[in-house]
Structures are given as structure tokens and as C-alpha cells.
Computed example of a mutant assay.
Amino acid sequence: MTDWTVLHPIIDGGDPDNVTRLVRGLDPAARKALTEPLRAYEKTLRTGTFVSKRFWTPRLCALTVAGAALLPSASSVAVWIARNGLQEDETGTDVIDLVVEVLQDRRVGWLPDLVDRLALRLPADKLEPQLQQLVVKLSAYTGIAPLATDGLVFAWIATGREDTSRSALARRLFEVDGVGPLLEPGGWPTKLAADETLDRTMMLEGCLFRLRRGGKTADLNGFLLLHKALAPTHSEVAMLAKDYVALLSNSHTAISAMARHELVRAGQAGALPDEWLKISR
């Protein structure tokens, strides 16, 4: 059985590989006995008068692996991983596989909850590739797709890699600020419009919702391009006529012009009642 006097110097030496070896196969009672010393040690590192980044940074990855192996719940493990990190600053070595290994070894039922909690910690304005990879690998192990969080939507558009079902990500695409400027550089308007697995009505409604909500011009331009790529039919414009009419008074000239163009086009094709044509003039 591993006790704290054995585990402590291994963590203190910044050796996550040997931490993994020492915690493998521990029973719940042994893990519980190591939890409080581990928490006290981490607190000492972070709050002691001698603390400096140079001192505690080399120990962070070992701490991350130990916490994943010992802490009692999805919430405590998610907080611990986010606080201590998954990559060694100086060498760039990550401990993603070691964290997955020690979590698999525990055979606990809360891993799907942990996947969702980690996905919720992904930022929606920048990539955190190590945390993203951990979400992907744990999701693959549990067989359960994570929540389509803002961070996963951002990561999907920024990298092109899906970490949950594409339809779930697409539904959330229109709710996440900051992804609009990424659409054109990634060729997303064409790709999304051509994707037959995505519901066209949902995509069109999403575009109109996002344009109506407003925001920065660069963000809105991406969704104007997506709307253009979707090329709505006359019947689709007629079905969503109220949404297009709501955009006629939009402060962004390009948006109001698009709405007027679509209404007039549908009206000229006989798809709209006369009252809608009068409104669009």
C-alpha cells in the first residue's frame, strides 16, 4: 500500500510517471487516506511565504496526476486539473495520457460528469489544446459525447475538429460570440451549407437570430456569409418572412439590405403575400 511518506517525495520531485505507478490499483480507502495530505501539500506550495513560480511549477503536472487519481468527485477533480494544468512549462511535456490512465484505473461512475465539467472550463475565446484533448480522450473512453459548450464550439470552428456531435455544435454556433470572424478564413460558410447532416431550417433560423441579436461587424459578417452560402429558396424566405422583416430596421446596413433583397426576391416569385411586399419596400 502506498502511503504519503512514499508518494510525497515523488510529487515533490515533479515525477508524474512514478506518481502514476504508485497510485495504480489503490482501493477507495487508500485513496481517501492520501487525499487530505495531498490537498494540504498543494495549499502549502501555493500559499507559503517561500512560494515562487520557479519553485512550484515543476511540481504541477505531478500534482495534476495525483489529484486525478485520489480526489473524491468529478467537481473536485475538474477544479484541481484546471488549477494545476496539464503541461510542463519548460519542456512542453503534457500529462494527458497519464491523467486518463489514472482515471480509468479508478473505475468510478462519475467520469461522464467530469467530461462535461472539463468541457465547461474550455474558454470560448482562445484554444487550450491540452484541456481540449483531455475532454476528447475521456469522452472516447466513456462513449458519451460532452456538452456542446461555448469552448467546444469555438474549438470546432478554430480547429475543424469535432468534440461532440456536429449537429449539437451547429445548434450552438449562433449563440457563441467571437466565432463569426473565424468562419470565412476556415471556409465554413461553404462547408456548413453543403453539410447534409445539418438541418437547413435550423441553420437559416440560427443565422437570422444571430444577425438580429447584433454585435461586432466582424462577427456578423461571418454569419452574413453563411446565410449567403445557404442560399435560401423562395419558400424558405416565405416561411421565415417575419424574421426577415425584423431585420429591415437593423442598424447594420448590410444586414437590412440582405433582408430587403430576400423579401423582394421571394415576393417577385409570388411566394409572399402583398402585405409583406409593401413592408419590404
Rank of each mutant, 00 (worst) to 15 (best):
M203R: 00
H261P: 03
D97W: 07
P232T: 09
E175F: 13
G215M: 04
Q268Y: 09
P181E: 08
S235A: 15
L225V: 00
R213V: 07
S280G: 04
E101T: 13
Y244G: 02
S251E: 14
F55L: 15
G180K: 05
L204T: 05
G160T: 08
R54I: 03
D105N: 12
A254T: 12
E128Y: 13
R210C: 07
A257D: 15
A40T: 12
S75K: 09
T57G: 00
W188G: 01
V237Q: 04
L240D: 07
K43Q: 15
L272E: 03
L152G: 04
V264P: 05
A269S: 12
S235V: 10
L248A: 04
P129H: 07
G270Q: 07
M203N: 05
D12M: 09
R107S: 04
A158E: 12
M239V: 00
A246F: 02
L198K: 01
S251T: 13
A254D: 15
P112R: 03
Q104F: 01
A246P: 01
T91S: 15
G67I: 15
G85H: 06
D105T: 03
L134T: 09
K53P: 01
V19K: 06
G85M: 11
L169C: 05
R24S: 10
K137P: 06
L204P: 02
R213N: 14
F154D: 04
V79N: 07
F55G: 14
L211D: 02
T201G: 08
A257H: 11
L63A: 10
K126L: 11
G215F: 01
V99W: 02
F50E: 14
T20P: 10
V95C: 09
P112V: 02
G67M: 11
D243L: 10
D199E: 13
L173V: 08
A269D: 07
G109P: 03
A271L: 04
R24M: 05
T149E: 05
T190S: 14
A254C: 05
G25C: 11
L70G: 06
L204D: 03
E128V: 15
D17E: 15
H227T: 06
G14L: 06
W80N: 02
M258Y: 05
L152Y: 09
G14N: 04
P189W: 03
D243A: 14
L120H: 14
A193E: 08
T91V: 02
S280C: 15
S75Q: 12
Q104P: 00
G214A: 11
W4P: 14
A148S: 12
